[in-house]
């Protein structure tokens, strides 16, 4: 059966349109879902936010012929996030920027395949676990120890483990983040390939 559409032409206008739209969607997600997650103080909401971001920008990169596509998508998302009315803006901005830069480096190093997508997912979602310590603990002066205790409390509540087993809680939390990232990465790759097939792209 003949494909319904012609394969995409590699041109600047196409890249710009894709970067603008995928960046816009990432930005909207950060404003809406991100604001709710911060407002209701959902534990480890950052991990879900980054998993959602992975599902948005990673499939987008398969359709864009630009080495620095993810950084550009991240820049658009940051720009839109500036206009968010939520009370917390700077930590998510730092998070978006770091996520975009790290993902772009991984994709540049390993090219666009299932391995790089999975690795990106795992690294990005795991980064959100440490983001609290870096952004709020160090940059905003809340102190790493306070953040550590907060994370332990949330972790012990979620996993139902006594807070005295701190090492086990931290280890399990990191493993859970990695698993969530891997699932997000594989789903992103699968979604992008399915979309390519259905739209008749080569």
């Amino acid at each position: 059966m003949e494909p319904l559409q012609q394969p995409p032409q590699k041109n600047r206008s196409r890249n710009l349109a894709f970067i603008g739209i995928f960046g816009g969607i990432w930005g909207i997600t950060e404003i809406t879902a991100g604001s709710y997650i911060h407002a209701f103080n959902i534990p480890f909401g950052g991990a879900f936010m980054s998993a959602m971001a992975i599902l948005i920008f990673l499939p987008g990169t398969l359709f864009i012929d630009d080495k620095f596509a993810i950084i550009k998508i991240g820049a658009v998302a940051c720009f839109i996030k500036i206009f968010s009315i939520g009370s917390i803006i700077l930590p998510p901005l730092i998070s978006i920027a770091v996520e975009a830069i790290v993902s772009n480096i991984i994709i540049l190093l390993f090219s666009k395949n299932i391995f790089s997508f999975t690795l990106t997912g795992a690294v990005i979602v795991t980064y959100t676990f440490f983001h609290k310590f870096i952004a709020q603990g160090i940059l905003f002066g809340r102190g790493i120890l306070i953040m550590y205790i907060e994370v332990l409390n949330a972790g012990s509540k979620m996993l139902g483990i006594n807070i005295q087993h701190a090492f086990v809680i931290i280890f399990l939390l990191i493993i859970l983040h990695i698993i969530l990232g891997i699932i997000a990465g594989i789903t992103a790759f699968s979604l992008a390939n399915q979309a390519k097939k259905r739209l008749g792209y080569k």
Partner: peptide, 8 residues
């Protein structure tokens, strides 16, 4: 890119 992102 920025206007596209906002208007989308």
């Amino acid at each position: 890119v920025l206007p596209i992102g906002l208007n989308v």
